[in-house]
Computed example of a mutant assay.
Amino acid sequence: MLDEYKTIVGIAESKLVVKKSRFFGLVTSVDTIQGSKRFIELVQEKYPNASHYCCAYSIGRDHEKREYATDDGEPRKSAGPPILTAVASSQLSNVICVVVRYYGGINLGVGGLIRAYGRCARECLASAKIETRIFYKTLQVQTPYEQIGAVLKLCGRLGGRVVNVEYDQRATAHLQIRQREIENFRENLRGINTDIDVIDPVTV
């Protein structure tokens, strides 16, 4: 199973003026819904008092993929969906695009809005720097103290990353495992000790 994906490095921006309405597009990479909310807040701080902050994001892959689009007060399906279409067409993952509009006093009509928001999003995405990253899944592993070293070694051998390790009655490690190695990781854990619990933390 492929667990690599292409996404955006940093923040890319675009600007468009249509009949005195000014549109500003901003796109970046996000891994969580909470991260997308923080980015929208940053955009609102950078462009205060705008008429609309329309956006769309695509996070995750396959059955865990989450997509969202909002018109933020514009006519229904005139802003968010064309932005989401641009994101989907880019074939990038874990991406959010926000298009800010300052109303210029002239109505653009639904068709004009669809074209403007879509174009601003496409130009923003086209200007972005792209890199390849890896999909990881975060697992919580609880194990007897004497086995934690073997668990961490296994994580590293499979290309995973250690987020943190806590020690209480048992050792609890939060590990990021490559998507394609999840089943292999679980099978190897059973070989280390049957008294190891694996929990998939819920992240939003």
Rank of each mutant, 00 (worst) to 15 (best):
I83P: 04
E74C: 14
R157V: 10
G104A: 11
G156I: 11
A121L: 08
I83L: 08
Y145K: 15
C120I: 02
E74V: 04
T143C: 14
R66P: 00
G109T: 10
K129M: 12
C120E: 01
E74I: 01
S127H: 13
A121R: 01
Q147M: 14
V99R: 11
N94F: 02
S89H: 14
Q142V: 14
L92V: 05
D72M: 05
V95M: 03
V95T: 07
Y68Q: 05
G149W: 05
P144V: 12
T85F: 01
T85S: 09
L139H: 11
S90P: 06
A121P: 01
C120P: 07
I148C: 12
N94H: 03
V98W: 11
E123R: 03
A86I: 04
T132A: 13
E123I: 07
A79T: 14
P81Q: 09
P144K: 15
I130C: 08
C97M: 02
K77E: 07
V141I: 13
S78F: 13
Q147C: 13
A126S: 12
P75A: 01
E123F: 07
Y68N: 03
T143E: 04
R119Q: 11
G73R: 05
G73P: 01
R157F: 09
V87Y: 10
Y136T: 10
A79G: 07
A128H: 01
E64M: 00
V110T: 15
E74Y: 07
E64S: 00
F135C: 02
Y102D: 14
G149N: 13
K153Y: 11
V110M: 05
S90T: 09
I106W: 06
R133I: 03
I130L: 14
G112C: 13
D71E: 05
T132I: 11
R119A: 13
Q142N: 13
I114L: 10
C97A: 12
G109R: 03
Y102A: 09
A126W: 01
L113G: 06
G149T: 13
K77I: 07
V99F: 01
I134Y: 02
L139F: 13
R66M: 00
G156V: 09
S90Q: 05
V87Q: 10
